[in-house]
Design a protein around this nucleic acid. Sequence first.
DNA 1: CTGAAAGCGCTTACAG
DNA 2: CTGAAAGCGCTTACAG
Lengths: 349, 349
Amino acid sequence: MTKTVRIKDIAEKAGVSIGTVDRVLHNRGEVKTDTKNKILAIANKLNYKPNVAARALKSPTIHKIAVLLPRSDDDNLFWSKHPIGIEQGKESIYPFACKLEFFYYQMHNPAHFNKKADALLKWQPGGVIMAPILKNESVELCTKLDDLQIPYAFIDTNIENTGNLTFIGEDAYQAGRVAASLIDMSVPAHKDILIVNIVKNLENIQHLNHRNQGFLSYFMDAGINTGLKISVEIPSTEPKQVKERLDKVFTSNPNIGAVFVSSSRTFVVADYLEKNERQKLFLVGYELFGKNSYFLQQRVINFLIGQRPIEQAERTFKNLFDFMAHHTIPEKKNYQPIDIINAENMDLH
Amino acid sequence: MTKTVRIKDIAEKAGVSIGTVDRVLHNRGEVKTDTKNKILAIANKLNYKPNVAARALKSPTIHKIAVLLPRSDDDNLFWSKHPIGIEQGKESIYPFACKLEFFYYQMHNPAHFNKKADALLKWQPGGVIMAPILKNESVELCTKLDDLQIPYAFIDTNIENTGNLTFIGEDAYQAGRVAASLIDMSVPAHKDILIVNIVKNLENIQHLNHRNQGFLSYFMDAGINTGLKISVEIPSTEPKQVKERLDKVFTSNPNIGAVFVSSSRTFVVADYLEKNERQKLFLVGYELFGKNSYFLQQRVINFLIGQRPIEQAERTFKNLFDFMAHHTIPEKKNYQPIDIINAENMDLH
DNA sequence: CTGAAAGCGCTTACAG
DNA sequence: CTGAAAGCGCTTACAG
């Protein structure tokens, strides 16, 4: 380990004062072009890296980071994980510090999203973490952030062709394939498979779509199951409606051996299966939390596919902060590992 | 956020100089008991936390950490992951720094272990990370480290009743249950199951034992499989010997439907199954790397159970370093998540 | 356009 | 047993 280079060293080599070096290094104030280039060349050659301890000590610059996420409720506990991860990220940057402000919008409510987006802008953040579930409204916000030169990172959902710094989330297509592979190896090849999408408007929910596509693709190129793949859309989680819909499907398709739920609302189907004594059906869905965990433990759900929301959030935060504080450029797109979880390994996840 | 407390604040409140406060806080030099207690009381009341940026800036104390691990070779690529995690840990502590020295011992060679342990002691580390695979020799080293008051952390394998700072590894018993559950749900209930232990002396390898116990326990309380559980021990990975042994087992047990390998040498069995056209057997083993990955990809191995060796190593390093540098006391025992990996989610793991 | 100086909170000799 | 002072590398006014 050779001696670390300080701005003092650069200053001496360049025959200027450290103030001038600092100005060049931070594009702060005017410096003659000649000296500027000279200094940059020397800094580069010496491979200068600022001492972050000194920087943290001197300037307690508090970076302001705003977080825009769906509000978590009983039906939607999945989103309760992300704030935890972000707070963890905040802890991890010590001795640096940042100011966090959370803005929660109602999941499928564009007007409310816009309201929160406005509040966020008014808060004047130095950086933004957001889950851009609502595409049009999100793009609108991104445009504004681009104009203001405020960096922003996507979590959970990606939108291409925006100025986002980075995206961290699930490879939904592959996550669909994983679900398929689990069913394929556990259910006799001649059995039919039911695909359940619990959502109002499947078209608009990108990643549910991708999971469906991945799921079906598996059986086209690798799967051994030859049964029917029956798809049903349920617009609500309301038990009566769910029962009505599913009763009909099962009555007309007695050969169903497995059920795939494309979203975190797997517990809704588990609840139905349990109440209607169909627990023998093989059930696979998404996300380990709340009622899903309960039914997994009870072995009504056989597998949950997980995407580590806490780690996702922590990593998103770190990427954004490191960019703001140290100008580190992160990967543009990051997929988290896809976890396969059953009753035996759930406790440690 | 209230103003942070500095040692200057404590000094003022106590009516002494900051030098005295520092002496008390670090048990350095003599201080009158009265003032000492007074200062401690004030520091405590004010909830004083040292500013690590200032500390890092001032004293570039380079902590010396020695790492004692099994040498990784072609047959044993599992151990190639841990150094990566430790290096990652070293990166992550910036702006702090440490000096790492790796000592690699031959896996099952006590004399070589001792030699490396001696070299390690001679290097005079301030802390030690070790995989205490060889129990007696490890305990001996621990005793010496205890005497020297050098903190040490266990990775992968735990030994109870030593003075270790922390342990991070796999819950082997549970990892055995996970393997069992996967076989149970994929193989008809009446099929027999073969358990393969590839190891010279099963008794001495704690965690293989625990995996076996967990595996069998699953079928006693939760499993539906009612077939025989046939156990075989193979003392070497030498293909001819493996073939001889397994040929015999399969000939006398034609009803075997699944194979469980209790160690990372799963590829040895996969290789046999492939060469002998027994790929239809359901195969489950441990650790994602090298030839195991290849056979998983080829679907000769159906599932690998993973324990995230890189994260394990990074976390062990962090725990040890934080103790050395900041006196943070870690959890005494940490289990990493148990990963279930098949051909569909292997790429992201 | 550039330099000199103060100070962030801590640690480390040194002086008494 | 205790205090005063220097200095870690950087940033931030201020003076010219």
